[in-house]
């Protein structure tokens, strides 16, 4: 689709439809862990509504951003704790 937005996930480019939630974009691109916990465990979203903070990733350089509460924008850079 021509009106897709381009984002990068850990440096790799991806094309997603506008209004895609960042967490969804990550899952669709095959990300299986969003962050590592304080003891190093892999984690994925739990609540999907912004309260649990398990879906934290770095968005445009801002660490600890809740990916389930942010919509993809053109040029957005997303980095996970892989």
């Amino acid at each position: 689709m021509s009106d897709n937005v381009q984002i990068t996930i850990n440096g790799k480019t991806a094309s997603v439809t506008p209004l895609t939630v960042v967490a969804t974009a990550l899952a669709c691109e095959g990300v299986t862990r969003f962050r590592r916990s304080v003891t190093g465990e892999p984690r994925t979203p739990l609540c999907g509504m912004g309260v649990c903070f398990e879906c934290r990733v770095t968005i445009n350089g801002q660490p600890n951003s809740r990916s389930c509460q942010v919509l993809c924008e053109d040029g957005m850079e997303i980095v996970t704790d892989e």
């Binding site: 895609t20 939630v21 967490a23 969804t24 899952a27 669709c28 299986t32 862990r33 916990s37 465990e41 892999p42 984690r43 994925t44 979203p45 739990l46 609540c47 999907g48 509504m49 389930c68």
Partner: peptide, 21 residues
């Protein structure tokens, strides 16, 4: 319960409605 791919119930529904695979 902390393993990846264990989600809330409503959460899974909300994520799916937002096109989670």
């Amino acid at each position: 319960w902390t393993l990846p791919n264990v989600y809330g119930a409503g959460a899974m529904q909300a994520l799916a409605k937002a096109d989670w695979p």
